[in-house]
């Protein structure tokens, strides 16, 4: 009997590994293909370039991973990014010191996220609905706040966030790496992370073992809002301009990275390693399309085909 229970288990683990390697295999295959097609692809400067480009989506996707892990969804990330960006840029132009403006911007993002979470928990609304509302509301507020115009020309201290290279590492990459590392530790090394997995697996059981599921849900949305704000600040610093129209459809890229990374949409299974690979695949793909100068008319077909293929490879394992 112990034998009989042992074996499906090992086969599951085997699948689990295959699934985890599946996305890695897709990524490596994509990189090999691009190296063969372009001698410009496999260079240090292009590597740094790709990493820098995925920071915005990557940071948002970290929050989205948390949200999807507990079985929720956050559609408002792009709008929250836009609103926090324009508010922060406006504060900067009004002479608020950089650290204070950054704190206020991220705080605003967290507040918006907390509103998402609070409404979802308090009124038992599906997060799909709540964050869809926030998607529209935050966008509207960003447009109202700026009257539709971008805010351009920001202080150097702030632009350091996008252009700075302490210790030779570009700031965006440094920040994203810190975010990933901290988020990974929280998810895999603390009870909070284990609670989130438990909530995603079985919210009823999670409550029955004493987890304050409501508080954790609000916390996760707060985190997602804060990370969207941080991503927005990096984007703003890189562009030297905050745009009320920034971040449209960013939620789709973030969700794509998370799902491509193997996190299950129903929650409870997955993690940040996969999300990082998912974001990398999307970034490398965009980079490759530009390097190879693929006609814009075919671009979306190529992109869709590669993503579908990658998903196929590692979803086969399930």
């Amino acid at each position: 009997m112990s034998q009989a229970t042992a074996v499906p288990g090992t086969s599951w683990n085997f699948r689990d590994y295959l699934q985890r390697f599946g996305i890695l295999i897709s990524f490596v295959l994509l990189c090999i293909a691009l190296s063969l097609l372009s001698d410009r692809f496999l260079t240090v400067s292009n590597g740094v370039n790709v990493l820098r480009q995925i920071t915005v989506n990557g940071i948002i996707a970290v929050g989205m991973t948390y949200v999807i892990l507990i079985g929720d969804i956050d559609l408002s990330v792009g709008s929250v990014l836009a609103l926090t960006s324009v508010v922060t840029a406006d504060l900067l132009q009004k002479g608020v010191p950089v650290p204070a403006a950054l704190g206020l911007g991220i705080g605003l993002g967290m507040a918006l996220g907390a509103v998402n979470g609070w409404i979802t928990v308090r009124f038992q609304v599906p997060s799909f609905i709540t964050t869809l509302g926030m998607l529209t509301a935050a966008r509207g507020m960003a447009l109202t706040y700026t009257q539709g115009r971008p805010i351009t020309g920001l202080p150097d201290g702030f632009r350091f966030l996008g252009r700075g290279e302490p210790l030779g590492i570009p700031m965006p990459i440094l920040l994203a790496a810190l975010v990933f590392a901290a988020a990974w530790v929280m998810l895999r090394r603390t009870r909070h992370g284990e609670y989130l997995y438990a909530m995603g697996n079985n919210p009823v059981a999670a409550r029955l073992v004493g987890i304050h599921t409501g508080r954790y849900r609000v916390l996760v949305f707060t985190l997602s809002g804060g990370l969207s704000a941080l991503a927005g600040l990096i984007l703003t610093a890189r562009l030297d301009s905050a745009q009320p129209t920034a971040g449209v459809a960013f939620e789709l890229d973030a969700i794509a990275a998370v799902v491509l990374g193997g996190t299950r949409f129903t929650g409870g299974v997955g993690g940040l390693g996969g999300t990082l690979l998912g974001a990398l695949i999307i970034g490398v793909l965009d980079n490759g399309i530009n390097l190879l100068n693929i006609s814009p008319l075919y671009e979306q077909i190529v992109k869709g085909a590669v993503i579908a293929l990658a998903l196929l490879i590692h979803r086969r394992a399930e």
């Binding site: 009823v204 059981a205 409870g268």
Partner: peptide, 23 residues
């Protein structure tokens, strides 16, 4: 439907209610 975290491990399921003391 109310007790197990099916996708989680034996270790995780066993000590989930004790995690506060174990962390």
């Amino acid at each position: 439907s109310q007790g197990l975290f099916l996708q989680m491990t034996v270790r995780q399921n066993t000590v989930i209610a004790r995690l506060k003391e174990l962390s």
